[in-house]
Write a protein that binds this DNA or RNA. Structure first.
Lengths: 211, 211
DNA sequence: TAGATTGTTAATCGATTAACAATC
DNA sequence: TAGATTGTTAATCGATTAACAATC
């Protein structure tokens, strides 16, 4: 379980996909797989797979391949899936509600502890037993509760100030759905989901003078 | 307005961000910008910006920089924002509803023409004046209406079959929120939004033994 | 042992950065 | 003209692929 340092972002971005395919194999009771077989399913080259997996100790075996369960567990561990996370959502609009309702996240170990909004019409309503609270209490709430991940589902113009509140209170992981690039100190990790940009990538490719 | 072929995916993925920053500059009445200034705002190197923009004819001017409006228009054009798109959403759950309600997409020229679901409790309900229809009618609907983009907000297990219906009826752009990799013919473009994978990237980086 | 398949090094490919001549 | 800044080529860096010896 030794790990080499300096895993590149390219590798990290592929890990969740490995995890997904390995779990699918597990569900189908496959217990070993070679890089070649996995390559055919997942669409990376066998060479790349071996290269990627070698970043983290060696769990392959020459002449045999990889043990699916072992590999899945190990990658799950690297992804941090062995922990529980406390999550706060800010913004109870469409996206915020969708995230709050998405039950899969609970299964993965993400506990949504609170939802905040600025809209008086929403405050007091409940989403899956979690009451929507007034954004004015966010700061106090974060002081009193240890939160791992803040989810920003607010308009662009308010995102940075909400972000600052999270950061000030030691929330080091931010999942940002607002169409802005947040400014954060080095120790804070931001993962962006920029839906408009994703959609524009699609239309760009669709207008295939480019290819 | 000449364009060099073989624009790399790396460049395409950056274009929406250029567009976002240029529009912000426009709103602030900035009418010219140098690659150096833009670099400081957007966070790409000045060299990369010039390299990127040169993929599409030259709209810069030595000693002056770039005209913001002209550049924004041109990138908007490359992104396909000068067109209107007809969109169908399949799956009226959390994400499907969020997309349907997200008014920004209307502004960008995306017209949601129909929403389909399998759940009888949802069928007949309306989201922003668009009635949720029975998934059984999807095939007929696509035969009768020219649709540019299909949005998949369905569970993993049904995604490929819905995808096939879209493809069969000539829908060449798919925006896929289901946690699967769709199999499509070469002419079809798929843009994935894999929320779980995005969240796992975040937790992976959060558990910073890796960096 | 023979066959299979990894781990790992070397070669290739592509993307980013640096440099500078061209030119507004 | 002098200064600024691009367009573009060359150098560097990093990521992917190929190859093969090690070994199960």
């Amino acid at each position: 379980m030794e790990r080499k340092k300096n895993i590149s972002m390219a590798v990290i971005k592929r890990l969740p996909k490995y995890h997904r395919y390995l779990n699918e194999l597990l569900r189908n009771d496959v217990d070993r797989i070679s890089s070649k077989e996995l390559s055919e399913r997942i669409g990376f080259t066998a060479s790349q797979i071996r290269q990627d997996l070698n970043c983290f100790g060696d769990f392959g075996q020459q002449g045999y391949g990889y043990n699916v369960r072992e590999l899945s567990n190990e990658i799950g561990h690297i992804l941090g899936l062995t922990k529980e996370y406390y999550v706060v959502i800010v913004g109870a609009g469409n996206i915020g509600q969708a995230i709050a309702n998405y039950i899969n996240f609970q299964k993965l170990g993400f506990n949504i502890k609170a939802i905040f909004d600025i809209n008086p019409k929403l405050i007091g309503l409940k989403i899956r037993d979690i009451e929507i609270m007034d954004i004015d209490y966010l700061d106090d709430y974060l002081k009193d509760n240890k939160i791992d991940i803040g989810v920003l589902c607010v308009p662009a113009k308010s995102a940075q100030s909400i972000c600052d509140k999270f950061v000030k209170n030691g929330v080091n992981g931010l999942w940002n759905f607002a169409p802005v690039d947040l400014i954060v100190p080095e120790e804070v990790v931001v993962e962006n989901v920029h839906l408009s940009e994703s959609l524009l990538t699609l239309t760009c490719l669709l207008n295939g003078d480019i290819k």
